[in-house]
Design a protein around this nucleic acid. Structure first.
Lengths: 117, 117
DNA sequence: CAGAATCCGGTCAGATACTG
DNA sequence: CAGTATCTGACCGGATTCTG
């Protein structure tokens, strides 16, 4: 096997892992939601909608379900009147910190570049 | 202004930067493409298609154009017969390293979690 | 408050075929 | 080799309305 083939194979394997991650975080809102929940540790539905901005209840609801399915957050119904619901980040969810932080950093830098033009 | 409001505002601002980044990297293929070009510094169209795997020429072409527009990569036509085209990562494109690496790391960890079940 | 239900347009992305 | 052209189904995600 040639050297080039080996490094190509390595790269392809890495790309598979990246694609796995991208699938979990797919869509417009998951990363912002996780980011907000890492920031606040826990929040209610309406809070999240305010923090994130621009997301409809339909979308927020859908994305929260997927995140719960993937064990990144938990959902807890509190018996008040009217009911409130508390979303919390899991320890597994916290493992996304690096990803989100690097995205934030890059995005912030990118903003400067854009504005600079 | 209450304390909570301040931290909410902070979080919302960060989310904006994250959303900027997500927009640039939107779609299924841009991150893998950038990753491959960081790994190899430069590659040809067909190479990229092989490395990434599963992407159609239509998609690859489209994504490469967007990446070039955003100054993350360059395109150079080489006058051979038949023509070859060399795509290279720019120094700005290299600034995505951290993002991609953290995605790779998380994805690799996530794989273990999934397989472990 | 925290959603569910319904409707709907847009675009994403795959399959396939073709070109210089 | 490095794309372009065309077609098409899927689904993403917004708007709106309604409910316990």
């Amino acid at each position: 096997m040639k050297d080039k083939d080996k490094t190509m194979e390595d790269c392809s394997k890495k790309i598979l892992a990246v694609r796995d991650a991208l699938e979990i975080f797919s869509g417009k809102w998951k990363i912002p939601i996780i980011g907000a929940l890492i920031h606040f540790e826990e929040a209610r539905f309406k809070d999240l909608q305010n923090i994130i901005g621009g997301i409809t209840s339909r979308m927020l609801s859908k994305e929260l379900k997927e995140l719960e399915t993937n064990l990144l957050i938990t959902r807890e119904v509190i018996d008040t009147r009217p009911v409130t619901v508390k979303y919390k980040i899991t320890s597994y969810g916290k493992s996304c910190q690096d990803v989100i932080f690097s995205l934030y950093q890059w995005g912030a830098e990118h903003r400067k570049v854009i504005i600079g033009k």
